[in-house]
Amino acid sequence: MIVASTGNEIISKTKELNPDIILLDISMPEVENLSFCKKIKEISPNTKIIILTMHFSEEYVKEAFKNGTEGYILKDSSFSELEIAIKSVFEGHTYITPKVSKVIIKDYLQKEQNPLKTLTERQKEILKLIAEGYSSKEIAYKLNISIKTVEAHKSQIEEITMVKVFIIDDSKDFINSAIKLLTEEGIEVIGYAYSGKEGIESLQNLNPDIVFVDIVMPDMDGFSVIKELKKLNNPFKTVILTLYDNDEYRKVSEEIADGFVSKSDFFSKIKEILEGILREEKKKTIYKK
């Protein structure tokens, strides 16, 4: 067994030794994103790659296999499962941890139950006009209905269509509780990260609607993380998440993020929070206790 702690070290040792299997943590230094797998395959085509990660969304799994991996296992999996994964991949099979398989199946079933099919004809009309860039006032005039009715339909459309969320927080307890809450509310958590750096790297391959970012983390503060995320030029909204509700944090949040929420409000007002952040008329949504 050979151990490497950086991307460059992996490339160097792969050139030298042509290993049978590489267990790859995509969040390690000098590993830009999942396309790093292709670099390994170019050097050593017969080397098998098993991704070791905390991300369990269908999108991330697909991206991993698209880039040439043969296995996918979560970091909290047992050593016995890791042994099974290594043996399976070594024998020429593809391995996906059961925890991820269940999520993929659930995601597939949710997509089969197309949310657009549950919209009324009027809601479909309004959704089409929203996509074409019409304001609520213009939609009301065009369809000969009140602005209040348009807003009510828009709220219902937002509730029906699936919202995708990514969470960056160094608290495992918070992330586990948040995932449970969001899933119960019909909101898809497509991934999470326990550090700012890992979150930035993961979001190069994912496209959530909203990213919740904790302010206080060991490697990077939440404000720095959001500044880096803006450089990705992805359309997702960013929301500061914190235990510390003070004016200074709120002021900075208004300047760089799309929202600010205390962790206590996150659990008590999640639907209100999401509706406010996604609503077109509000560019900045600040939630108070």
Rank of each mutant, 00 (worst) to 15 (best):
K154V: 04
L143Y: 06
Y108Q: 14
K154F: 01
K142L: 10
S136N: 15
H153N: 11
K124V: 10
K111I: 10
G133K: 07
K154C: 05
V89Y: 03
K137G: 09
F79E: 10
A140N: 03
K128Q: 08
L182M: 13
V189P: 02
A131V: 04
P115D: 13
Q113M: 10
D169F: 08
I168K: 04
G92L: 01
I86T: 05
Y141D: 02
S88N: 07
E184Y: 07
L82D: 05
G191R: 02
A152L: 08
I179F: 05
S171V: 07
I167N: 02
I157F: 08
D169R: 04
K180S: 15
L127F: 15
Q110A: 12
I84G: 04
A85G: 08
L143V: 11
K172P: 14
L127I: 08
K124M: 10
V103T: 14
K87D: 08
G196K: 08
K164H: 08
Y95I: 03
S135G: 11
L109Y: 13
S155T: 14
E81P: 04
E185M: 06
Q113H: 14
G196Q: 10
K164L: 00
S195M: 05
H153Y: 15
V163H: 02
D173K: 06
K197D: 11
L109F: 12
S171F: 09
Y194R: 13
L109I: 12
V150A: 09
D173V: 12
Y108F: 14
Y134S: 12
E151A: 09
I84L: 11
S155V: 12
K148M: 11
A85D: 05
N176E: 15
S80N: 13
T94W: 01
E132D: 11
S171D: 09
V100M: 15
Y134L: 14
D107P: 09
V100R: 04
P98S: 13
F166V: 07
